[in-house]
Write a protein that binds this DNA or RNA. Structure first.
Lengths: 214, 214
DNA sequence: GTCTATAGGGAGATAGAC
DNA sequence: GTCTATCTCCCTATAGAC
């Protein structure tokens, strides 16, 4: 870990992470070669190995960076306070905007969940990633619990609703060409993102908020 | 394509498809080797190549088989008729049961959507797969449109809701160890499946069905 | 930090005997 | 239909010069 420079040029390390993020998102861990990453950055393959000791380590670093970014955003969002209803709406909206602003995020994260050999190695990056996932899920679970306890949200099983909702929010931004075919337009087009946000918020809200059904 | 035998023993071709389905679901296209598939079936690698000319063809055949199964089930479900509300409830329930009964399905299908080199080759299996996807999505879209036209469903954008809902339904069954950690129990355990179905139905229903909000 | 060269293994696919 | 043997290529990773 080198010290951040004041100059604006991104370090080789960061440029490698950027390229690897895009490739891993599109083709998965096994589908990407280190040579491909190196070519994308404009370096030799050996130079990539100088910054990341192995392909697995590079992958972990990519995942950890994404998860930390998401966790930061969610924690900040929840810290702004407000009624559970308001916090939930803000959280879903910001999460979707974050995923929309970084097309690799949803795709890479969902892919990483599908790997059976989980990234539960013992490297520091893996630990950071696991911690971030834990933080993300626990913040959301806490919010749901509070809302249900106060009667604002419909009583239901927090973990099950959590799992369903995560899929609902993340899938559209991971669905690639499929999503494009369903919508008829690019999923990441601002107008489509806006519409997805609106529909998701209405689905979540009217599905969770108590409204006269005892 | 050989003729189906009356004997109950599955053909080598079917056994290859079974093994490949599980492996592709867990490790993705690039993460699986033909040797691995052959070992799983108990054959030599060359024997697998006798049944499927290439790895890509094997993958397409696996996808096509799954998609046809799902399409059949959905078409049959929708043909049973009933009010849009009833048909939607039945469709979501049956789809989730199908995904729950075949742990590879959701994982493999979501993975296949994430590949950027889509399976849009011109082989017959690819065409069958594409046709099945089209049929599945169109049936669901038609159902939503009918419900909205008759005022039973809240007016909204059919494609966007479709995309969000597909993610909600499929993700839990594709989420693997992540889902297990969130729920504290195996996602495919009958009790968990039942609960997921209940929560999903309530989310979809109260999010779509008009209930006193002009 | 970046490079060339290479080790060592495994991949997809083919040839041809049985 | 299944096998053994093999071809060719590309993979992760390392060695060591600059």
């Amino acid at each position: 870990m080198t010290v951040a420079t004041l100059a604006s040029e991104p370090s080789s390390r960061d440029r490698i992470l950027d390229v690897a993020e895009g490739l891993f998102a599109r083709r998965g861990y096994a589908g990407v070669g280190m040579k491909e990453v190196a070519d994308g950055v404009g370096l030799g393959k050996s130079s990539v190995f100088h910054h990341f000791a192995s392909k697995a380590e590079l992958y972990s670093a990519v995942c950890a960076r994404i998860l930390s970014t998401i966790e930061d955003r969610l924690v900040r969002s929840l810290a702004e306070g407000g009624a559970p209803q308001v916090r939930l709406e803000r959280l879903v909206g910001e999460l979707m905007e974050l995923l929309a602003a970084h097309p690799s995020y949803a795709r890479l994260l969902l892919r990483s969940l599908f790997e059976d050999d989980d990234l539960a190695g013992d490297g520091p990056e893996e630990q950071a990633a696991q911690r971030a996932i834990g933080g993300i899920m626990e913040s959301m679970a806490t919010l749901l619990k509070e809302g249900m306890a106060s009667g604002v949200f419909r009583a239901s099983s927090v973990p099950h609703v959590l799992l369903l909702t995560v899929g609902q929010i993340a899938f559209p931004f991971a669905s690639g060409e499929f999503g494009q075919e369903v919508l008829g337009k690019d999923v990441f087009d601002p107008a489509q993102v806006k519409r997805l946000k609106k529909e998701a918020l209405e689905l979540v809200q009217f599905g969770l908020v108590e409204q006269g059904r005892a």
